[in-house]
């Protein structure tokens, strides 16, 4: 057998192996999670440390944490992206500094964000174990990805737009508001969804910031348990919690799958359709 045929066989085998392993994994998660999944599971509050009941309050907490994270990081991220694309050249020192910082930020492991969030938001700013602390910590984590996707989206808007707007004697501000940001909207929304997806998958950064309390939160100052933390807690700290953990894992995966699909659809189709005309 020639090297070429051998290589072809090995690569097909590797791909088959990877597919088989992952299909097993997905089938496992789905089949184990499906048994406990029902409408009442989604809306009832957890009982007996999660062994019984549902995940109603936990879904609310997760939603609130993500809402806080997006509400703070989206404006900041958009503003930074606009500065980087529209108000500075790529060579300027300030832009370089901002981009390097974001590169570093995107490489920091989530447990470090957990430590930082605990020290800064919970203790230094006195927010305690709360949904607010957790959301703000996730906002810091989501910033690099939001800024990167928004920057790419804005750079994909043809430069003709900027020149035409300038030739019509429009200020950069109004060109941004009326032309550039609307044209980049699909990419901006896609980035936002991607950020939500990342934040929703996060566990380690939330354990010491938003806490474990599984009651229905009264406000963002309450501690609230995110879905991912719930899965961790059920499987590690609660004897007999595995079945419920599997169901929660399935819910989380479906949620993230939907979010990521919407994101990639927006990025690939909607944006394409709008820009291709030029």
């Amino acid at each position: 057998m020639s090297t070429n045929t051998l290589a072809t066989c090995l690569i097909w085998l590797a791909a088959l192996f990877v597919t088989a392993v992952f299909v097993c994994l997905l089938a496992d998660i789905i089949s184990q999670g499906l048994t406990g999944l029902s409408w009442s599971y989604l809306i009832e509050p957890p009982q007996d440390a999660g062994r019984a009941g549902g995940i109603g309050s936990i879904i609310v907490s997760t939603g609130l944490i993500l809402l806080v994270a997006i509400a703070t990081s989206a404006p900041l991220g958009l503003a930074t992206a606009i500065l980087l694309t529209e108000f500075s050249t790529q060579k300027s020192t300030f832009a370089q500094f901002v981009e390097r910082s974001l590169d570093v930020l995107s490489g920091i492991p989530s447990i470090i964000f957990g430590l930082f969030g605990n020290a800064f938001f919970c203790i230094y700013l006195g927010l305690g174990f709360s949904i607010l602390s957790g959301g703000l910590t996730l906002a810091c984590m989501a910033l690099p990805i939001l800024i990167r996707t928004a920057t790419e989206g804005l750079r994909a808007v043809p430069n003709d737009y900027r020149l035409s707007a300038a030739a019509l004697s429009m200020t950069r501000t109004s060109a941004l508001i009326h032309l550039l940001v609307p044209a980049a909207t699909p990419a901006l929304v896609a980035g936002l969804m991607l950020g939500i997806g990342r934040a929703g998958a996060e566990t380690a950064a939330l354990i010491f910031t938003s806490g474990y309390v599984d009651r229905m939160p009264d406000s963002v100052m309450d501690s609230g348990r995110a879905l991912s933390v719930h899965i961790y807690d059920l499987s590690m700290n609660v004897a007999g919690g595995d079945a419920k953990a599997n169901s929660a894992a399935l819910v989380l995966i479906i949620l993230l799958f939907v979010i990521n699909s919407v994101s990639s659809f927006l990025a690939n189709h909607w944006m394409h359709k709008r820009i291709i005309h030029l």
């Binding site: 900041l76 500065l83 300030f94 901002v98 920091i108 430590l115 930082f116």
Partner: peptide, 30 residues
Amino acid sequence: LSHTDQNLSLILQLCALIAAAVVLLILVFL
């Protein structure tokens, strides 16, 4: 830049500074 643009640019720079400062803040707190 016109006046409006200068004002916007200032606000944006402030935002970018905050975003870039997060990483320093993490280091400082660690």
